[in-house]
Design a protein around this nucleic acid. Structure first.
Lengths: 213, 213
DNA sequence: GTCGGACCTCAACCGCCGGTCGAGGGTTGG
DNA sequence: CCAACCCTCGACCGGCGGTTGAGGTCCGAC
């Protein structure tokens, strides 16, 4: 889950996240042994914090106020171009660890229905995602990334963008992975993740750059 | 004149104004004997600085960038509810500190050499990046994204991946932007950025998912 | 002239914010 | 049993946004 955020925000570290927790900006759940367990809502929240900090230069105090206000059910405050609000939608309960990326990582194994529930998508959408190879089962199970992909697809769907429009994303990802694997061939260690984060970073910068022209 | 500003901003002091001058945010004229002489334009400028600081929590560096940008004849930047812009006369503006890329947004305007220095890349690499359209100048200037792209490319280069290998990234980014622009056609507001973030998120999840299989 | 007060410069200092580091220790998967 | 994580907690840190003070100059009033 750290990798995930690092792809988007270059300078996030474990210690920074711990610091943010100490400041009361996030409150991840804990496992029995004390490890932090980040739900997707927690990650949304962090994304909000980091975006506000980076793009609006808001001090943490102010960000905390905003979050607190939202928690009390108020409209997201902040005048002007603010980061997208982390909508903490009611999570379908049951299915204990469906949102857990940190401790189980990709070892997370979901059934088809669990995935649907966790991502809040219809069976139809999931079918489309699979038919375009955006979500792929391993054996009978899906992992944490599948949830993220499905959720993103659901958001796109709200703008009328269907899975088939997203196929280029898959192709692009495949090409990047191919590139990385070529380089990292011999030693298949954490260099791989490093390069992947780098690739995503480049990608993000390019998108932004093209957009603002 | 101090009294004048103090009426509006309680915590302004002489020493603060002197400090702001030292930071290059205002450049009042001087009398023969060295006393500061504030024109009304200077006061407008200070008003802008103090408002931006108080109401938008902007760091002085960013405020300075905005002022510099305006001095260069650009439209007042700053997304969102910004303080009323003071239209000042052109002031001698120092060049941005090239090492400070992190604090500059896309309003940043760098010369070719400034970009090279900020990203720590060779002229050759930059040329390659431009020939593959990974980095593109607007007019004679480059923006903050160019630094990010250049730095990422430099890291890739350490793994033997050259700009030409990165062309698919550009193509993918272009496709994504095309998709977004199609959707966002009518209302060209901050939905755009929201969608772009979503796209990058999907991309990241896909890369991870493909990688860990 | 000369005195007081307001202005100047420059360097040293300061408090807070936003983290980082590292020692000391538990947990987990292989 | 070990390596690789994760945890806490307190010390530390660099930068930002000024403040303070010593030492000196300028000006108007007496």
């Amino acid at each position: 889950m750290l990798q995930l955020l690092q792809a988007e925000f270059a300078d996030v570290t474990i210690s920074k996240i711990r610091f943010l927790e100490a400041e009361g900006l996030v409150t991840p759940a804990r496992t029995a042994s004390g490890y932090r367990k980040f739900s997707t809502a927690d990650i949304e929240r962090l994304r909000y914090v980091l975006t506000a900090q980076r793009d609006q230069y808001l001090p943490l105090k102010v960000i905390k106020d905003h979050l607190d206000a939202m928690d009390r059910g108020l409209r997201p405050p902040a005048p002007g171009g603010r980061p997208a609000a982390p909508q903490t939608l009611p999570q379908p309960a049951g299915l204990p660890d469906a949102e857990d990326f940190s401790t189980y990582g990709t070892e997370l194994k979901l059934t088809r229905d669990e995935l649907r529930e966790a991502a809040g998508i219809t069976a139809e959408l999931l079918e489309q995602l699979e038919s375009h190879n955006l979500v792929v089962a391993r054996g009978n199970h899906y992992d944490g990334d599948a949830i993220l992909i499905a959720k993103a697809a659901a958001e796109f769907a709200q703008y009328g963008i269907e899975p088939r429009h997203l196929r280029p994303f898959r192709a692009a990802a495949d090409r990047e992975v191919g590139l990385i694997e070529q380089v990292v061939q011999p030693r298949r260690d954490d260099k791989t993740l490093e390069l992947a984060a780098l690739a995503v970073r480049l990608h993000a910068a390019l998108v932004r750059s093209r957009l603002t022209r």
